[in-house]
């Protein structure tokens, strides 16, 4: 018994030492340390964090402490909860759909960055520049060119019975991509017509997945040849798999756009450094960010790799006013649920 106790304690000590050694290699120089809240993919090895952060630190001498959680909603909620004590200087990753909540929170301080000159006005969804766009994506259906169904040419096309069980949709109640699709249909068909589209295409749907991860996963495993994703999805496959098999489709009705933004907190004590970071992301950080997130850079001057040729550019793009979204989202998703449940 004593021996077991001894072993247990030894093990515990060993573990704590390992943990401490991890923690040890970390500086806490508060002087010039920026705290950045962003979603988890940023910090991942495949995200832009690991390249951009050291680069920024090198160039400016400002240290950045990256705090990443699951997704933007979590980050925002957390910051709101933390209120005055929020240690973050910057929050990165809030999309225009969620902006209303961000505005309400009054957390953010406007920043008129000089770099915004190079950013198209249509992308600056916040006139007051509290939330500054840094990349954007366009929702599109992606099609498997090796499948036996022809590529649909429009949203209307998807209602065709030839696509029965060939489409993977995503649930707007549980996913921002699903939500994007919902808004896309409202953009195109209006509030009176969008549900008809959903009812029709819902019949053709193999499944309505809970999120992009599972939805796209089903797609790559060959369950169905059409999935809702982004115009930039093929870029990944070209870059890393040398494959042009998966193609994003441009529809003449137009596409819905989602813009990701970064904002500086009013409570920040490192405003100058925060501004420097924002500028950095909007200039040197653009290419890396876009590629890592499979999105487009907002800065028109960014040079992108050739693979981006496989991300088609739609003619028409829609956006929705965040206030409008916030006011109606509850009703829309409820209506949607009603309509889809009685299929």
């Amino acid at each position: 018994m004593k021996r077991n106790l001894f072993t247990t304690v030894l093990l515990l000590l060993l573990c704590t030492t390992v943990l401490f050694s991890q923690a040890a290699g970390e500086s806490t120089d508060d002087e010039k340390t920026l705290t950045l809240y962003c979603y988890d993919t940023f910090s991942s090895e495949w995200g832009s964090g690991p390249t951009l952060i050291p680069l920024f630190e090198q160039e400016t001498g400002i240290k950045v402490d990256v705090v990443s959680t699951g997704d933007a909603v979590e980050m925002l909620s957390r910051a709101i909860m933390e209120g005055e004590d929020c240690p973050a200087d910057l929050i990165m990753g809030i999309s225009d759909d969620q902006a209303s909540k961000a505005y309400e929170s009054a957390l953010f301080e406007p920043y008129d960055s000089p770099v915004l000159e190079h950013v198209d006005d249509s992308l600056e969804f916040d006139g007051e520049h509290r939330l500054i766009p840094f990349d954007y994506g366009v929702f599109a259906f992606v099609w498997d060119s090796e499948s036996d169904v022809p590529a649909p040419r429009s949203l209307d096309d998807l209602m065709d019975p030839v696509y029965k069980d060939k489409i993977i949709l995503i649930d707007p109640r549980t996913s921002s991509v699903g939500l994007g699709l919902l808004m896309w249909t409202i953009d195109v068909y209006g509030e009176d017509g969008y549900l008809d589209w959903w009812r029709a295409v819902g019949q053709n749907a193999l499944t309505i997945a809970d999120g992009w991860s599972s939805g796209y996963g089903l797609f790559t495993e060959g369950e169905a040849p059409i999935v809702i994703s982004y115009t930039t999805s093929p870029v990944y496959h070209v870059l890393w798999e040398d494959s042009t098999r998966y193609q994003a489709l441009v529809f003449p009705e137009g596409h819905h756009q989602t813009i990701e933004s970064i904002g500086m907190l009013a409570t920040s004590r490192h405003k100058e450094e925060a501004k420097a970071f924002i500028d950095f992301i909007l200039t040197e950080g653009q290419a890396e960010t876009a590629i890592a997130n499979s999105m487009y850079p907002v800065n028109g001057e960014t040079v992108l790799p050739d693979a981006y040729e496989w991300a088609p550019v739609p003619d028409k793009v829609f956006s929705m006013d965040p206030e409008y979204v916030a006011a109606n989202i509850d009703r829309w998703t409820e209506e949607w649920t009603q309509a889809m449940t009685s299929l």
Binding site: D71, V73, S77, Q98, K101, D171, P172, R173, T174, S176, L179, G202, A205, L206, T207, I208, A209, D210, S214, G215, L218, A326, I329, D330, T333, W336, T337, M340, T341, L343
Partner: peptide, 25 residues
Amino acid sequence: LVLGGGPQYTTLEVEIYRTNNIVMD
């Protein structure tokens, strides 16, 4: 949601998620 195929099979959890993360209420 995924294996069931759609919103006709939906649970209380989904509603909680929707209300918190999408509607943000």
